[in-house]
Amino acid sequence: MNVSEQVVARLAGVEKRYGRLVALENTGLQLRRGELLALLGPNGAGKTTAISLLLGLLRADAGTVELFGRDPQDVRARQRIGVMLQHAELPGTLRVGELLRLTASYYPAPRSVAESARMAGVDDLLTRPYAKLSGGQQRRVQFALALCGRPELLFLDEPTVGMDIETRQRLWAAIRQLLAEGCSVLLTTHYLEEAEALADRVCVMARGRVIHEGTVEALRARVATRRIRCLSAVDAGVVCSWPAVTAAERRQGRLHVTTEAAEAVVRRLLDADPQLSELEVQRAGLAEAFTELTRESEQGLPETRREVA
């Protein structure tokens, strides 16, 4: 199969404005069959606009928006997707089973109600009215509605907000099962550990642009910073003055050092304090990488654009 056939959703050179506000500027992203792409970025970065374009809720001012090679406003394209939005108040007097049957009726070859309910862990809730469910249960029902049409592409917008840790883990397991069956997922999330746990690729947006796209590993590798922690008598102020050390401080009796040259700093620390113990060296996580990337993009902005946005 050639590469273009593997692309299930695509934005290319997309522009979207709301009046004078530029929501998206020359934005491109591709989602391939069977992969999970996490869309990350601070509020107002353009994630919601990008998703709304792919769902056919908005029209781009310029550029190409495609879902399975079609216009997303074509219902035949949307028959292949499942959707879980961040905010959707479903009719509270309808029972979970009725909501599932209704949503499944929009699709050509849906899963059975029982199968959808089991996959999302709501099989015990089928006869309950939606309004009587807890917030976390309602999110699980929305997830069941997203997968009930046997979609080839799932849009999940902040799916685990309001879920406890165990429920979140079960949802992640269900997402992994769907991915293994060849379903693609476009995930937006504020939880970076969620992206780290699930994503094949991450796409970081800021100020209406894609500022980074690549694997989770590649994103983390962009940030050379590592953190050193240890129990040591060496003075934090002294360590601060060493070359390549960006920060050093003492917290709860432990020395915390941030540096881009961990090996050299560790060697110097061991020389300075033979009693040093409980040494830990960690590469910065996705969170640090993300913070650094978005900060860079802010600093890189010319003055004029910052005012418009």
Partner: peptide, 17 residues
């Protein structure tokens, strides 16, 4: 339904218009 996001969800789903 416009306020609560239900209409948005239904427009995104393949509901016959």
């Amino acid at each position: 339904e416009r306020d609560g996001g239900l209409l948005t969800l239904k427009r995104a789903l393949p509901m016959p218009p």
